Simulated assay, not measured.
Amino acid sequence: MTRAHPWSRYVAIGDSFTEGIGDPEPSVPGGYRGWADRVAEVLGSTTDDFAYANLAVRGRLLQQIIDEQTDAALDLKPDLISVSAGGNDIIRPGTDPDEVASRLEGLVERLSSQGATVVLFTGPDIGATPVLGRIRGKVAVYNENVHAIALRNDAVVADMWALRELADSRMWAPDRLHFSPLGHHTIARMVLASLAVDNDLLEYTVPPVAARRWREARREDVSWAREYLVPWVLRRVRHQSSGDGRSAKRPDAVSVVYREAARPRDDA
């Protein structure tokens, strides 16, 4: 088999974004597929000895990722590591994006210490997102730090802020905090492009969203706040996490099966 890229062992670390929340798939470990699984499937399709592990756990803050996932990731001897971390810190009131970025850089230095290629993520542009749109400036500052960290450490940036397709509401899960199957598919395409890896993941186009009446939009916002926002706020007040008691869905580096025949859905 022709090797289309230089990597043979990929480890993903992070939080719910990397775990794949929003992209349910009962047949895969953990019950969620996500962009990282999709990327691993493509990378493994051209490399016989390719192996993949995903240590991400939903709800994890940056320090938890540093403390719980870094050593485990390095023990697997990867030559490719993706890390998306800090988002759960940034959305919390009172956090300093520069301070969070400083800790992220220490993590990147450790992850690259064995010569692995490190992929970092900017946060998406959440300016049009209810509630979270208020911290758009913090996300932008954090993103600038991510670009600077990547430059200093020879890391690859997967730039979600520049991925304008994510402005489409169908890219997001019903909770408006995580991505839908369509969103994860779109992000996987972007990550592979950032790695300069050719692939056959199709750009999935959907017709324009029909304009909603103001009253309908407000009813949806109220329903969303009741079902998703209030429980999220209560967990923060109680210092609880959706990831409490959970462990990594793919703790060992193993081969993966290419599954792209399962097309992303646009009904999220």
Rank of each mutant, 00 (worst) to 15 (best):
Y228G: 07
R92N: 07
S223V: 14
L111Q: 07
G94W: 05
R3Q: 12
A148L: 10
G86E: 01
L234C: 06
V131K: 04
A253E: 09
L107W: 02
R60I: 00
V42S: 09
E144R: 14
D37V: 00
A248C: 10
A40P: 02
F179Q: 13
G243R: 07
S8K: 13
R103C: 00
T117V: 10
I91Y: 11
E144P: 01
V146Q: 08
V11T: 10
W7I: 12
A12S: 13
H147D: 07
A211K: 14
V191L: 09
S169P: 13
Q64S: 11
D67W: 05
V197A: 03
A36G: 03
L192I: 13
I21P: 01
D154I: 11
M160K: 06
D79R: 04
H5M: 05
R238Y: 08
W224Q: 06
S247Q: 13
I90L: 15
V83E: 01
R38E: 09
R236E: 11
E203C: 07
S102Q: 13
V28N: 03
S112W: 03
G137T: 14
Q240Y: 09
I126D: 00
R176P: 02
R238Q: 15
E68P: 02
R3L: 12
A188D: 00
N88H: 08
T70C: 14
G133M: 05
A56Y: 01
L151W: 09
Y10T: 06
E109W: 00
A53I: 08
P78N: 06
G243K: 04
V42I: 13
V209S: 14
L229A: 05
N88P: 01
T2I: 14
T2V: 14
I187V: 13
D75P: 01
L202I: 09
G22Q: 03
D75A: 15
L80G: 01
V206K: 07
R136H: 13
G115R: 01
I65W: 09
P6S: 09
K249Y: 01
S82A: 10
L62Y: 06
G127H: 11
Y142D: 10
R164Q: 15
Q240S: 12
D23W: 03
D48M: 05
S27K: 12
R3C: 07
P26K: 01
V83F: 01
T95G: 07
D252I: 11
R33A: 00
V230Q: 02
P174E: 10
S8L: 10
P24T: 05
A150Y: 03
R265Y: 09
R189P: 02
A148W: 02
L234D: 10
S16W: 03
R213N: 15
A56H: 01
K249I: 13
G183L: 04
A167Y: 10
T46Y: 07
A158E: 06
M160Q: 15
L192Q: 09
T117I: 11
T46M: 08
S241R: 04
G87H: 02
